[in-house]
């Protein structure tokens, strides 16, 4: 009989998240209904210095055209299970004023949201990472996202996480010198790869609108719907579709957790959970575990500190999987008849 912490929550085989850079107000009309239909919470990537304002970033495709969500609007989405990441104070080069862009932006966002902001998303090109990198950890961020179109492994460097683009991109190339051919978006992008490697896909898009502005980084509602449809179909119930803070928290909890067998009996077995240091900003402290049984048993039940677990996430003849709020030193017991 073998007990182990699951790679992903609920015993899922891969994880999926989606992020919206700039956190524009249009999401409420065009993206939120699709999120609700597929039960996939999203993640807003907010420019702290322009909350609730019409975008003013002269180099941006959206400048003067789109309004950022306000703190109040984002708090309503948080209630629905969404989360918010930091996209700097001005969406500028982090090296010009890293204190404001990395440290001050976090404080401004946290004040507006009334909760910790744990992830940072590099604005613009990723070149600004290296010089500013020294600030992220000390500021209390748990993770930093790039935009380099990779599937994250299930044990990734949290300060070098990848995101893949969801985009419209039809017709002739926007930048033929660099990207000489038109590209079509594949709604299955990286899903089968994630299923193969048990990794974590984090999608990245910007505006979701029937009339997108930047075809290489915006989506239409139809494209978003097709993407979520593929996520659910490829996943087939084995996908953990959630916002990225949940995933980061789970990875940190999993890394800190150890299950040690302490008792073996005729009708029960028990383990002790050891939780090493979990970073303070971690919000979700749940873990999932799977018990692999050497032989089928009847009426298995899980007890944590002598309290029964209400339900299993998954159960078959040889495996039971469940999720619980984890604390250091908990006694986890399997009973059967």
């Amino acid at each position: 009989m073998n007990a182990q912490i699951c790679t992903w929550k609920y015993g899922c085989k891969f994880a999926y998240s989606i992020t919206y850079d700039e956190a524009f107000e249009d999401l409420l009309a065009h993206a939120l209904p699709i999120h609700r239909r597929y039960n996939i919470p999203g993640h807003l990537v907010a420019v702290a210095g322009q909350l609730g304002q019409v975008r003013h970033v002269p180099s941006s495709s959206y400048s003067g055209k789109c309004r950022h969500l306000s703190g109040a609007q984002m708090r309503e989405l948080i209630v629905e299970g969404w989360s918010v990441g930091d996209h700097s104070m001005t969406h500028g080069d982090l090296n010009v004023n890293p204190i404001a862009e990395v440290l001050e932006s976090k404080r401004v966002l946290e004040n507006a949201l009334g909760q910790a902001v744990n992830v940072f998303h590099l604005p613009g090109a990723d070149f600004s990472f290296a010089p500013a990198a020294r600030y992220f950890e000390s500021a209390g961020f748990l993770a930093v996202f790039f935009a380099d179109d990779r599937v994250n492994s299930n044990d990734p460097d949290l300060f070098g996480l990848s995101r893949t683009l969801v985009y419209v991109r039809a017709g002739q190339p926007e930048f033929p010198l660099y990207d000489p051919f038109p590209r079509v978006y594949d709604p299955y992008h990286r899903l089968h790869e994630a299923l193969d490697c048990g990794g974590w896909i984090v999608d990245l898009t910007h505006l979701v609108s029937p009339e997108p502005i930047a075809l290489w980084k915006d989506a239409t509602p139809e494209i978003l719907d097709a993407r979520f449809n593929c996520v659910r179909r490829v996943g087939g119930g084995w996908e953990w579709a959630t916002e990225p803070e949940q995933v980061i928290d789970y990875i940190l909890m999993r890394r800190a957790a150890t299950l040690t067998p302490i008792e073996w009996g005729d009708k029960h077995s028990a383990w002790q959970l050891k939780l090493a240091d979990v970073p303070t900003p971690v919000k979700s402290r749940e873990l999932s575990a799977t018990l692999e049984l050497s032989a089928p048993i009847s009426n298995p039940s899980i007890w944590i500190d002598r309290q029964p677990v209400a339900k299993f996430d998954r159960q078959d003849d040889r495996n039971v999987t469940w999720t619980w709020l984890a604390r250091d030193g908990q006694r986890i017991e399997l009973r059967w008849q």
Binding site: A125, D126, F146, A147, D148, D149, R150, L165, Y167, F175, Y178, D179, F181, R183, V184, D186, P187, Y188, H189, R190, L191, H192, E193, W216, K217, C230, V234
Partner: peptide, 24 residues
């Protein structure tokens, strides 16, 4: 023809997905 690429250019940073377009 859909190009197989190693790594796409900025600003998209697309990278090779072995399953690309096959399920579609």
């Amino acid at each position: 023809r859909a190009p197989l690429y190693h790594l796409g250019p900025t600003p998209n940073h697309l990278a090779n997905d072995p399953y690309r377009l096959l399920a579609l």
